[in-house]
């Protein structure tokens, strides 16, 4: 059971528009939606929480402060799924240490995907594979930057269900950037609206109670 807590996080040095101090908690198992005009710095905020950008203030995962462990360890725990994933080897399989059959099958991939060439992947395939890649790292918190921007309706709802399932199974917090207000209302327990110089957080009472894929998670 680990909450994600941000204390006095300030990013003015990176983006002058973001001169507010961030103080919020995403409770374990819950999802905080992030919305706000484009270019306001939502992605910058997520990157800072993953300790990918220099910042003022502290970030805690449970009792653990980000700077108290080596950065790679923090990033494995607090995993950021960027809007556009990058792939550096020729074939899909080279980016994975093993084949998790259930996870791949969930998104409609079988074992042959490991041999596919990166150059031939569609943006939607890349996005689904990136989602699998990040979940296989067993993160303790998820930072999702428009994870469904390149997905069709069917895959979008598959991804939403998978994330919510993973979250409730492992009781982990998530932050979710989206420009799709309906999506934010489907997935978030609270929504942070980012504006120039400040932000507001409100509860999202519209979140539907979704029947989980398996087990007793809710």
């Amino acid at each position: 059971m680990t909450d994600l807590t941000v204390k006095n996080l300030n990013l003015a040095a990176i983006t002058p528009k973001l001169n507010q101090n961030f103080n919020f908690t995403v409770p374990a198992g819950q999802c905080m939606g992030l919305s706000g005009p484009s270019g306001i710095g939502k992605s910058v905020l997520l990157k800072a929480i993953a300790d990918m950008l220099p910042h003022q203030g502290e970030i805690y995962l449970g009792e653990l402060e980000s700077r108290s462990i080596p950065a790679p360890k923090w990033r494995k725990k607090v995993a950021l799924l960027p809007a556009e994933s990058q792939w550096w080897y020729d074939r899909v399989g080279e980016h994975f240490s093993k084949f998790d059959e259930a996870l791949f099958a969930y998104f409609g991939f079988d074992k042959t995907v490991m041999n596919w060439q990166i150059a031939h992947l569609s943006s939607g395939e890349k996005q689904r594979l990136a989602c699998i890649r990040i979940l296989m790292n067993q993160p303790r918190a998820l930072l999702l930057d428009e994870p469904t921007a390149n997905l069709d309706k069917e895959n979008r709802s598959l991804l939403e269900r998978l994330i919510s399932q993973y979250q409730c199974e492992h009781r982990i917090p998530a932050l979710w950037i989206s420009h799709d207000q309906e999506q934010l209302q489907r997935v978030s327990d609270q929504i942070l609206v980012l504006n120039e110089g400040d932000y507001t957080i409100h509860k999202n009472s519209d979140k539907p109670h979704r029947k989980p894929l398996q087990g007793e998670c809710a």
Binding site: K73, K76, A79, P82, W88, R133, N137
Partner: peptide, 16 residues
């Protein structure tokens, strides 16, 4: 030229 890839790999928790 590969700065995006480098950042992606760091994000995945790889050591520099």
């Amino acid at each position: 030229q590969q700065r995006l890839i480098i950042e992606q790999r760091l994000m995945l928790g790889q050591d520099y």
